[in-house]
Design a protein around this nucleic acid. Structure first.
Lengths: 216, 216, 216, 216
DNA sequence: CAATAATCGAGACGGTACGTCACGTCTTCTT
DNA sequence: AAGAAGACGTGACGTACCGTCTCGATTATTG
């Protein structure tokens, strides 16, 4: 997924001897990654050629292949290296507001030029498990950890059931966004996000769990 | 998207004159479509080559290109031609049961060998609007029409609000399934479907819309 | 050495069925061969790239590789297809004059732009037996057959021993020319040819050195 | 052609200051040269890569390039450094025996594993004047000087004309050997050498063909 | 029945990008 | 300063498919 070798520049912890030979060019690495993102945003995954990436980065094709085994690994790495520092969860005192605000940010990104890259990653990920894995680990997981915290605050405040299935709840909140983002069958607006939050979170409210249909 | 020409085999309305020349070979058409599905299921979209399809179908490459403008149109057609006749919505008298049963069928398909094809379509669709369009029109839309009927029955029975946003509701039900199917971050089980239905539909229940948080 | 397949265009003798598919393009073939000769004459063997040949011939690289397995086969074929129709042996009534005149023609070719090609062939032939084989069979052999005839006429006229070793004699005549041509340690002039003929042929006379022509 | 710099290891005349820094590694030099010969004998010129030479000699690539400007210079040097100390001309009292014996030795080398190297050199020399130049200067010229002496002894003994063209004569003797060696159209046997000597030297006799040695 | 016309399988065509290899240069640390 | 190591930009390699094109053969309608 990542670099084929971490032999260079590793001075983590002990006094590692640097491996001999010319060290990897950090400049080339960065240039390749940013060229990848640029071209990916312009033309989509299937039009992205390593030849073009190398040319645009003023780098030899072999240098790309030396460090990334294939196109999928390259874009996964490029995406991960650029992951937005934004998308934080606020703490407003209301689960629904917290979630809604973060989800609006996500939608904003999906609708921006970066959204092109995300959909390229998810598309490529359908035929390459490393790519989809990188998306999960580097993009999704960190945010989900924060989301857990947000939900937990809601539980403490009594806004959510104590025994709520957080994964189910979060997938119910984000799933529709991903669905509209990927299938493009309907609008992906801030208003949609709000109504989605209302619908799903109202089902997760503890006060009185409405009886399931047919049981009343 | 479909065939480039409908000159042959058109028997729509009365006694049309068949155009001269050798008619299109139905056998070749079927052989191409089934070869496409087979290879798509084996290797994914990006590994699918028209060269291989033609060879596997014992057909000239030009015959493929004569009827389908590109790979995307081909797999869209192949997929559509094979769309399961199943996936019907039952009418059990309960919205939740109706939806739950259909969604379970969908999940079953997603987890079967055909799921590979669906994910290939959706993945390819991220860089080809024709493909994702074909998926929407031929796979999703017909089912959604049926789903509208199912929801409408629920409304009549009083199980759902009269003013429920059906698109929002359906996306909330199916979105999490697509999300888990595409991102593969969590299990896609029948139990998940049930709990998902419970969560979402309980939020769409009319009886008493719980006040939105902070408004009570 | 030659084309990988002779499946096309063979109507020699019987009524052969032509193999199916688009027939080989004669125009492409000729364009490739002449481009090869041109570039070979300009830059020598090691600078000759198939990429350049294809580009110069306005032909796809694959078309070159489809018919010639490697560079050596290509230049062997190109050389053979261009073999000079000249280099005939005259019949003046004197072995020495006959040989001398033909050898002068050969030297003239060696010193011309075509000589560059010949030396490239012989050079490449040192690491590829097919190339040197093509040179022997297509260039050398036909001329040697004519040379035998010339020598035989000399024997009949009494200019040469009856039991002369014709191969030895011919190698003695041509070897020095090839040597100077390839090692370039000394001039390759018409005068050199004449004195070479005199030296060698005087040694092939049965009993007494025949006087040089025109001196008797 | 040779080393780019003679800064090191010069002990010519007196107490020269050795230039500072680490002296050139004689071991590396020898290892490179012998690796070159080994690989050249195995695979021919065009398959010989500097990369492989360096790897086989356990030497950095830059070390090769520091001392030899290109592949041609390298193999020329490698060849020269290994030039057989043999190939001397005997002094038997007969030109023909002297020449014949030396030529037999040459043929023996041509037919040995070292012949592979010689033909690689001559082949490479067709597209690189430095290589063929090195062959002339280091291999051919020294022997030719000895050959002149041998011929001069023959003149003094009356075996050869006084005004014989020694270059023509030597090319007539060696040319056929090189021709058969390079074009491989006929056998290169000791017997061939003998008959070649007889043919050519009998033509170089001043007035009458001297009887073959041992027959007088 | 012959002529016309469009399809078929086959496969060569001019291209583009692939992923690999060697080139000759460079940058690092070690000797 | 030379050494081994090995990454660098460059460019040709030989391959795989692209989508187009010519073939002869086949199968229909039309005259």
């Amino acid at each position: 997924m990542r670099q084929k070798s971490a032999a260079h520049g590793n001075r983590g912890g002990g006094r590692r001897k640097r491996s001999p030979g010319r060290p990897r060019s950090e400049q080339a690495r960065l240039s390749i990654l940013s060229s990848t993102l640029k071209l990916l945003g312009e033309n989509g995954f299937s039009e992205l050629t390593i030849e073009a990436v190398a040319a645009h980065a003023s780098v030899g094709k072999a240098t790309v292949y030396r460090w990334w085994p294939n196109k999928a690994a390259l874009i996964a790495d490029a995406f991960a290296s650029s992951t937005t520092r934004k998308l934080h969860f606020p703490d407003t005192g209301s689960v629904r507001t917290d979630m809604s605000q973060q989800m609006r940010q996500l939608v904003k990104i999906f609708r921006s030029r970066r959204g092109r890259i995300v959909s390229a990653i998810l598309g490529a990920g359908q035929s390459d498990r490393d790519v989809i894995g990188a998306f999960r680990e580097r993009f999704m997981k960190p945010r989900r950890q924060e989301a857990y915290d947000t939900l937990r605050r809601g539980i403490l405040r009594g806004e959510l059931c104590e025994d709520v299935d957080m994964d189910l709840l979060l997938d119910s909140l984000y799933g529709p966004i991903y669905m509209r983002f990927l299938i493009r069958h309907d609008k992906l607006t801030p208003d949609f996000v709000d109504r989605l939050c209302e619908l799903v979170l109202s089902g997760a409210c503890p006060c009185r769990n409405l009886p399931t249909p047919g049981m009343s």
